[in-house]
Design a protein around this nucleic acid. Structure first.
Length: 719
DNA sequence: GATGCGTCAAATAT
DNA sequence: CATATTTGACGCAT
């Protein structure tokens, strides 16, 4: 397991600075292991792409594209989004233009802007009677910029021109507006979102979609946090979801902003969304409220539907998961029913029936039974097969459309239905080896599942739900706990725990991490607050139903039956705390497989830069090493990924003169059910930018040091 | 025809 | 639970 990577996978000699190459050990095969969703094709997984290891701050060998997913590089080296090293875009990226010049499409001959027209799987045109060229022209040319300016030079007024004529109603203070305005500006700057160029705004890819989603979510959570703190008493129902979306849209932070028929690049079947605004900013479904989105065909001014959201507002239904009976919209006014009219979306769906074009379907499902919160699941492409009119209960005409799912797409909504049945006990989860791996140690049972081979389970270990300390961890700055008898509150500025977290409560009411810090201070034994305090998220046990499952090619892995919101807490890393100073190299490799070493170089994901975070103290060494070989929890099964959906953060729990440090895992994006949970084991490697997939899905990559991986070797089951 | 402005419908999240 | 909320289409005026 220790033969060098150098001989076979390193790019041409001389192209990298060997002195900067870190210790890289190969995985079983040199290709990274990417998690694949069940049923998803893994065809885009790179097979044998060479890797080179580079420090995060460079220098970067030729052909290597550095990319900071919302992370500010340590040095001052500026790497604008899409500028120097982007092979697929070249150097002729059109300059951005203000949003209001996007209003009306101006189809015209392509003047040879030199942009590559990448074929998109979303452009299914035949059924519309347009040929590819005319459609491409329509798509690209309406965004040809008139100004040769960089977006960074545009002041905000240029982007918010639309607002000038009709200033938004806002009750109360103007200071509020200014705060948010400067907040969004600093946010955009530190996240380099001002460089989000026009091409990417019009044509998304996985990276763009991921980034936009992350930006939206972090910004929304930050707004939530600030509003909560500011406005503790009034409790006025604000809408941070709408506000965050509106602000980002105004600033041009969006992608796929051209409506299209078919798939939207960068959005996969099965992807989940928690807010309608999210559908909007990634280009999946534009209207912020309406359920039917449609476009006008250039040929003859007809409209066709491009996407629908089925939210259950009307009584939509379907015979099975691949059929949807969708009600037309309208006919509802001030609580009064009237006949629906064949106009707008209804008309568009009717036309889509005749033209048989693909319609994206987004299913709104309640987060749990009876929940008011809906999760929007992208269920892929459907075609309208039938339409008819019906009288509803009030005796008014309602349009009905029968949509049938285009075959051959990955499972999405049907998977939700299956999971629902497993939970309800209506159906049995196939392949269950053990109904509860934890023997009751957690709040929810954790299934052990193998539907791949005969292996009966991982090597024996004792399930523990937290850390086993032999001695407390001494902090340099001992501090006292809080006195928040009723639990820490968002606006509690006197709360010492809040103060340590930068003045805010770090968790939302749902237990979602609101900002990313290098270190989370949670309440601990010496705090007066109750165990259900909002600032004790990592102590409250599992929030989601997890299962440990046998992967196809890397041992056991971890995934969730529940959807997990970005920022949601998953679990901590439990095990025996071992003394890093005495163990040296942590014993043999067998042990290493379950070692979590927090002392390794670690670059946290930094959201909005707080004062305490930008003073260069981001790299805090954490002298914590955990061995989960003998004692451990679900976290020991989490595999590494180069495009992880989970990160770990150190959590300090206050106690008298000592503090206990724990490792907590949080989702960094919305994670659909049954998608493997993975995090970055902590070694930074940049992948050479050989274009592998059309949407350049894996443009950077991290692979582990070789320690603490549970992916490659398994003893036969001892039970 | 192109542009600008006001009105309207849609359904949600708190 | 009531309701403030946003986007884009549409219609009309210039």
């Amino acid at each position: 397991m220790d033969q060098g990577l150098d001989s076979e996978s390193v790019p041409p000699p001389g192209s990298i600075d060997r002195s900067r190459v870190l210790d890289v050990r190969p995985l079983r095969c040199l290709a990274p292991q990417f998690p694949t969703q069940p049923g998803m094709s893994s065809a885009s997984t790179p097979q044998s792409t060479p890797f080179v290891c580079v420090p995060p701050t460079g220098p970067f060998p030729t052909g290597v594209r550095p990319f900071y997913p919302f992370m500010v590089p340590n040095d001052s080296q500026q790497i604008p989004f899409g500028a120097p090293n982007q092979p697929s875009f070249g150097n002729d990226i059109p300059a951005p233009v203000p949003l209001n010049s996007f209003r009306t499409p101006t189809p015209q001959a392509n003047g040879g802007t030199g942009r590559s027209k990448r074929a998109s799987k979303g452009q299914r045109l035949g059924s519309l009677g347009m040929d590819d060229d005319s459609y491409s022209d329509y798509q690209s040319d309406q965004y040809v910029g008139e100004f040769g300016v960089n977006s960074a030079d545009l002041d905000d007024a240029s982007y918010s021109g639309k607002r000038k004529g009709r200033p938004r109603k806002r009750r109360g203070d103007n200071g509020d507006e200014l705060d948010v305005e400067s907040l969004v500006n600093s946010f955009l700057t530190s996240f380099k979102l001002r460089e989000f160029n026009d091409y990417r705004r019009a044509n998304g890819d996985t990276e763009a979609v991921d980034n936009i989603m992350l930006a939206y979510d972090l910004f929304r959570r930050r707004l939530t946090q600030l509003e909560e703190a500011k406005d503790l008493t009034s409790g006025v129902a604000r809408r941070p979801d709408l506000k965050a979306g509106a602000l980002l849209m105004t600033k041009g932070v969006r992608t796929n902003n051209t409506k299209r028929i078919g798939h939207v690049p960068g959005v996969e079947v099965g992807d989940i969304f928690f807010f309608r605004m999210e559908l909007c900013i990634v280009g999946l479904h534009f209207p912020s409220m309406a359920g039917i989105d449609y476009i006008k065909t250039t040929m003859n001014e007809e409209t066709v539907a491009v996407s629908i959201v089925s939210s259950g507002g009307y009584d939509d239904e379907g015979e099975d998961g691949d059929v949807l009976i969708y009600s037309g919209h309208g006919g509802l006014k001030d609580g009064r029913m009237s006949d629906q009219k064949l106009e707008r979306g209804n008309l568009a769906l009717e036309k889509s029936l005749h033209r048989a074009n693909e319609v994206r379907v987004i299913r709104g499902v309640p987060e749990f039974p009876g929940a008011t919160v809906k999760i929007y699941v992208y269920d892929g492409l459907y075609k309208v097969q039938e339409s008819w009119g019906e009288k509803n209960k009030s005796g008014c005409n309602v349009f009905k459309y029968k949509l049938v799912r285009v075959p051959g797409q990955p499972e999405a909504f049907t998977l939700w239905k299956s999971i629902r049945q497993w939970k309800d006990g209506v159906a049995r989860r196939p392949g269950v080896v053990l109904p509860d791996l934890t023997s009751g140690a957690e709040t929810h049972p954790v299934y052990l599942v193998n539907d791949v081979d005969d292996e009966k389970g991982p090597a024996y270990f004792t399930y523990v739900s937290s850390l086993m300390y032999s001695k407390p961890f001494a902090t340099p700055k001992p501090s006292l706990g809080c006195q928040c008898m009723g639990g820490c509150q968002p606006g509690g500025t006197n709360c010492p725990c809040n103060q340590k977290n930068g003045g805010y409560l770090l968790y939302s009411s749902l237990g979602v991490l609101l900002a990313h810090k290098s270190l989370i201070h949670e309440c601990g034994p010496t705090c007066a607050c109750p165990p259900n305090c909002r600032n004790r998220v990592s102590q409250a046990g599992l929030k989601v139903r997890l299962e440990v499952f046998k992967t196809k090619n890397r041992g056991w892995g971890l995934r969730s039956w529940d959807a997990i919101r970005a920022g949601g807490f998953i679990c901590e890393y439990a095990g025996d705390v071992i003394d890093a100073s005495t163990t040296g190299d942590f014993g043999n490799e067998n042990e290493d497989n379950y070692i979590f070493d927090a002392t390794r170089s670690y670059e946290p994901l930094v959201a909005i830069q707080d004062e305490d975070d930008c003073n260069g103290s981001r790299k805090i060494p954490f002298p914590l090493v955990i061995n989960a070989k003998n004692n451990g929890n679900v976290a020991r099964f989490m595999n590494h990924s180069c495009s992880p959906n989970v990160i770990w953060l150190p959590v300090l729990r206050e106690s008298d003169n000592n503090s206990y440090i724990h490792i907590a895992f949080f989702a960094i994006r919305h994670i659909p059910p049954m998608q493997e949970l993975t995090y970055d084991y902590g070694r930074r490697v940049l992948q050479l930018t050989t274009p592998i997939t059309m949407n350049n899905k894996f443009s950077w990559c991290l692979i582990p040091l070789g320690k603490k991986t549970n992916m490659y070797r398994y003893n036969t089951a001892a039970r």
